[in-house]
Design a protein around this nucleic acid. Structure first.
Length: 557
RNA sequence: CGGGGCGUAGCGCAGUUUGGUAGCGCGCACGGUUCGGGACCGUGAAGUCGGAGGUUCAAAUCCUCUCGCCCCGACCA
């Protein structure tokens, strides 16, 4: 392609409403434009990148036997009502009516529709397994679109769905997908890891996420260097750092106006880890008291898995229910449901005395209160691995893919059943597997850039090579540029030829910004010796090569 | 949905406090000089000051309402 004929609107300055690296660079380098919050236009360069990513996705999906199909984006409500998600999901689903007042929604994902298809067409175990996938637009009315192309309201997703007769079949397809995902992300040049995750709204039992480390990410994962344990902090288990267990005699202490752990800790000159943090939450079945160690944070999702959905109690409610104001509440002598973090089992602690301006030192589990014991704290840097006891570290990541074992959640609801060898009717066992191509692109930029611009991994760059003839008025320069363009194109490289009548500085700046991995610079002085420069975008290293040897030297790398 | 910030030319911004009828840089068009890291000189085009209403002789500026965008949080494959 010729630069002069291609629409590549580069920007010298970053638009004010871009914050994250990938957002700024993709805007500045002319890859995308924003239409509205969370809605992006992919310009020619951006679309080429997505095209290359999608080509890799297709190859690897086909390689594990997945078959590409295409599903509608507009879905009738009934199918979503049958699985219950029409009601469960809420504001995140775009809903609309047709001219006959029938309810529809825009697809946020395609479990329902894929399962509907299976329910109509699959009859026998002989029809199984099937793996269907598509690269299709999804729509979600995100509460807060952000970070450019990383979190949008409309986005393309590669989503595949496996249909099996047996759990072993599902396990196999799950593993095949995990392996394919490793190949895909490796080929896309990303640093990533696979972690255990929370299935969330997908339901079902078991899932993993693929995470690309980046400060721009929205998720955090806990990693163990010792045994390789890795999980989203949403469910990561951990052993809080050990403390010298205390066995204090029980003693009431006057703590005037000292309400928070921090205040009491400073007042008593005692580290926060020797305190019990008592948090009152409200569930449909009534109030529950949650206890964590003073240096920990309560993990609401972990708690929700034990007691169901809940919300924090308001200050007034604390007073009404517990009879004492927040800040001095404790578990002692409470006749209510108490869920406590495992770390409080041993030793004695300081907790609220259940009377204003007093705390109690020497509160001891089982003697002074009874609780259900669980891991309900947020795993944090420095906590220890529950497997091997080595320290965990916490890293910020971009979610680039996920795999779910759905089981029969959708097939059951939509009556997607088959007859097994014995003529018995059974629900199909399903899995679903997603990858966001735009997130791969954004993660690649977040992981590979410098002050001058993007540095694309070779596999997903919009072009393999950019030719930079410096002086378009020099006939020899143009001649060599055209010849190289022809030769390298026929060698199978994708070339961008910067044939604009621009000054050298402008071309260099744009080339670095756009981030094509190899630049070939064609200048008059070098040409006199029959040489051109091959420059590596990442290292900025330049080698001078004879014009005739350019093709050969590129094939080596 | 809660908190904060911002809407003035294609982009980045000043002007708003103290009302007087809109400006700078980049970009764009034309002419000239330049030509290996975003050149220089000259000329020029381009703005319902996000929108609506109000106050006033007069509103980008003051008041009310409204829309949009960004950030933090809540939420979330």
């Amino acid at each position: 392609m010729r630069f002069s004929k291609m629409f590549i609107p580069t920007l010298r300055e970053a638009p004010a409403d871009a914050e994250s690296i990938s957002h700024i660079l993709m805007l500045r380098a002319g890859y995308v434009r924003q239409l509205a919050a969370g809605l992006y236009i992919f310009l020619p360069l951006g679309w080429r990148v997505l095209g290359r990513i999608n080509a890799i996705l297709k190859q690897e999906m086909e390689a594990i036997g997945a078959q590409e199909i295409s599903m509608p984006i507009l879905h009738p409500a009934e199918i979503w009502q049958q699985t219950g998600r029409w009601d469960v999901i809420g504001d995140e689903m775009f809903r609309l009516k047709d001219r006959n007042d029938r309810d529809f929604c825009l697809g946020m994902t395609h479990e329902e529709i894929m399962t509907w298809l299976a329910s109509r067409e699959i009859r026998s175990y002989r029809d199984l397994p099937q793996v269907w996938y598509q690269i299709q637009t999804k729509l979600r009315d995100e509460a807060r679109p952000k970070s450019g192309v990383l979190r949008t309201r409309e986005f393309i997703m590669k989503d595949s769905y496996s249909f099996d007769a047996t759990d072993e079949g599902l396990e196999k397809n799950y593993q095949l997908h995990a392996e394919a995902y490793h190949r895909i992300f490796n080929r896309c040049g990303l640093r990533f890891m696979q972690v255990e995750s929370d299935p969330g709204m997908m339901g079902g039992g078991y899932s993993h996420e693929f995470m690309a480390p980046s400060p721009a990410g929205e998720d955090e994962i806990a990693l163990c260097d010792g045994c390789g344990y890795s999980a989203n902090v949403e469910l990561a288990l951990s052993v809080p750092s050990a403390i010298d267990l205390q066995e204090w005699d029980k003693e009431e202490i006057h703590t005037p106006e000292k309400r928070t752990i921090k205040e009491v800790s400073n007042f008593l000159k005692l580290a926060p880890m020797y305190f019990i943090k008592s948090i009152l939450v409200i569930t449909d079945q009534g109030p529950v008291l949650a206890l964590v160690r003073g240096d920990q944070e309560l993990h609401e999702k972990k708690l929700a898995r034990i007691i169901g959905s809940h919300r924090p109690a308001q200050k007034i409610e604390v007073k009404e229910i517990l009879g004492v104001e927040a800040g001095f509440i404790g578990p002692m002598g409470r006749d209510m449901r108490i869920v406590a973090d495992n770390s409080l089992k041993e030793g004695s602690y300081v907790g609220g005395a259940n009377k204003p301006h007093y705390h109690v030192k020497g509160v001891k589990a089982d003697r002074d209160f009874r609780a259900e014991w669980h891991d309900i704290h947020i795993a944090k840097q420095g906590d220890l691995c529950t497997n091997c006891g080595k320290p965990l570290h916490v890293e910020r990541v971009i979610e680039i893919g996920n795999i779910f074992k759905l089981g029969t959640k959708y097939s059951g609801a939509l009556k997607a059943v088959f007859l097994d060898e014995n003529g018995q009717e059974k629900p199909i066992i399903m899995g679903s597997y997603g990858i966001g191509p735009a997130r791969i692109a954004a993660a690649a930029v977040e992981q590979n850039f410098d002050k001058d611009g993007i540095i694309w991994p070779k596999s997903i760059a919009p072009f393999d090579i950019e030719l930079v003839p410096i002086n378009m008025n020099d006939p020899k320069t143009v001649e060599v540029a055209e010849a190289l363009y022809k030769e390298l194109t026929s060698d199978g490289f994708a070339l961008l030829l910067d044939d604009r009548e621009e000054r050298a500085g402008v071309k260099f700046k744009d080339a670095d910004l756009i981030g094509i991995p190899i630049q070939i610079i064609i200048g008059e002085k070098n040409l006199k010796e029959g040489l051109v420069e091959i420059k590596d975008r990442k290292t900025k290293e330049t080698v001078r090569v004879k014009v005739e040897e350019v093709a050969a030297s590129l094939k080596q790398t």
